[in-house]
Amino acid sequence: MAKLNRSPWLLHYDGSSCNGCDIEVLACLTPVYDVERFGVVNTGNPLHADILLITGGINSQNQAVVQQIYSQMPNPKVVVAVGACACTGGIFKECYNIHGGVDTTIPVDIYVPGCAARPESIIDGVVKAVGVFQEKYEKYVSENKERKRSS
């Protein structure tokens, strides 16, 4: 696991989830599983967030909302799709109102399977997301340095 100087902040959004994965995400933030020991903190504000955890599939009502949250998050950012519905649409893939998983709307970096995804898998996904975030951050910093040098 990469070592970070700063602790990334998590934002959780429920697409069209049944709540199973959402309460497992919240369970990760509470005692017993406690993802805060890895330095991640839960925030309610997209402008403060680095990692976006999305549960549930995408339908036309929440497509614009998800895109707006994604665009409000500052770069670098990482998206984690939690649960079978967020990965592919899950058991509801054939429903008339579901387009599919989160990657039909925004780019996804990490997929966490399960129905409902277990807290252990979610923490594993978040830890991998922290690693991806570190890579993106280093790339972002070096690209900015290049831009400053050339301007």
Partner: peptide, 16 residues
């Protein structure tokens, strides 16, 4: 109410 794209999805049956 639900603001769905499909118009009256339950109006007819599709056996699948």
């Amino acid at each position: 109410l639900y603001r769905i794209d499909t118009k009256t999805p339950f109006a007819e049956k599709r056996r699948g």
